[in-house]
């Protein structure tokens, strides 16, 4: 194959440096969307090019990479991105959350607690939390700069007036470090609390929209709410049908056309570890 024609991490070093400069700015201004000269990547926009560019810019030879999509290591796009990095970096990859130094993700944060030695990289489709309220980029940048966020709460107010609760279940907006409101990428709101005061550096990359933002370690991330209608993450009355976990995010699997369902952890690594633990204790 022609891999050797490409630089380590696919991007040339100048592009990586440009992205790392944007990252420094993003870390210095938690939640602020830093424009950067996003590159075309050999996968389509919307398929994780933002995350891939970030990972490509920060990954080193000693890193160990985990890639998940929907919480699972074996979903098609996770496999594809992991293979890409195997080809262009030849780094070690893993499915075990604890072993990874860089975790690229789409739509989930692992259940296992993360550490200071890890970096999370999120793939972001639309970085602008105000986009559906205000389509103009010129205007939203001004709203962020001046912290004019009243209209965000109008949306939450309308939800409660109409439905009796805040009807946003994923990509739930949060205020970072007392200033910028950010879109945490389309993770379920179940994962929002994991962003708050996390020991792990969280990086967000939007390839097509050419924006990078970050939540540095130990930063306050407050999901928007009202005093009398506080933010509440999803809860289940069920356990995982495979590992019995009561505290993980569950996917509903339709098993036949009569409406039978299984409820299983979306985090496949977490689920398998749990199952293994139980087998051991059963022995």
């Amino acid at each position: 194959m022609s891999e050797q024609l490409y630089n380590f991490g696919y991007l040339d070093e100048n592009s990586k440096r440009m992205i790392r400069r944007a990252l420094l700015k993003a870390v210095a201004l938690p939640g602020y969307q830093v424009p950067f000269a996003g590159k075309e990547m050999p996968m389509p926009y919307g398929w994780g090019t933002g995350g891939v560019q970030l990972t490509a810019s920060i990954i080193g030879k000693k890193d160990c990479l985990k890639v998940i999509d929907q919480g699972a290591d074996d979903t098609t796009n996770a496999v594809s991105i992991r293979n890409f990095f195997k080809r262009v970096c030849d780094v070690e990859t893993t499915e075990e959350t604890g072993d990874a130094t860089v975790i690229q993700t789409r739509h989930r944060i692992p259940e296992q607690a993360l550490t200071e030695n890890q970096i999370m990289v999120f793939q972001v489709p639309i970085p602008e939390p105000l986009r559906y309220i205000e389509p103009s980029e010129t205007e939203t940048r001004k709203m962020h700069a001046l912290k004019e966020y009243g209209v965000m709460h109008v949306k939450l107010y309308e939800d409660i007036a109409r439905h009796g609760e805040i009807a946003t279940s994923y990509a739930y907006p949060a205020e970072v470090n007392g200033h910028y409101i950010m879109d945490p990428s389309p993770i379920p709101k179940f994962d929002n609390p994991k962003l708050d005061n996390s020991p792990t550096l969280m990086l967000f990359g939007a390839g097509r929209e050419k924006r990078i933002y970050a939540v540095p370690p130990y930063t306050n991330v407050k999901s928007l709410d009202f005093e009398d209608y506080p933010f509440t993450p999803q809860t289940w009355t069920r356990k995982c049908d495979l590992c019995g976990s009561e505290h993980s995010y569950l996917d509903e699997i339709v098993t036949d056309d009569k409406g039978s369902r299984l409820w299983v952890c979306s985090d496949t690594d977490f689920c398998q570890k749990n199952q293994a633990k139980q087998e051991q204790s059963n022995v």
Binding site: E148, Y149, G150, V151, H153, V154, Y157, I160, D225, F226, E227, D228, Y229
Partner: peptide, 14 residues
């Protein structure tokens, strides 16, 4: 009516 209140930081729905 509530927008201006929320814009200046009121956070109690009731």
């Amino acid at each position: 009516i509530g927008e201006r209140l929320m814009a200046v930081g009121e956070r109690h729905y009731g």
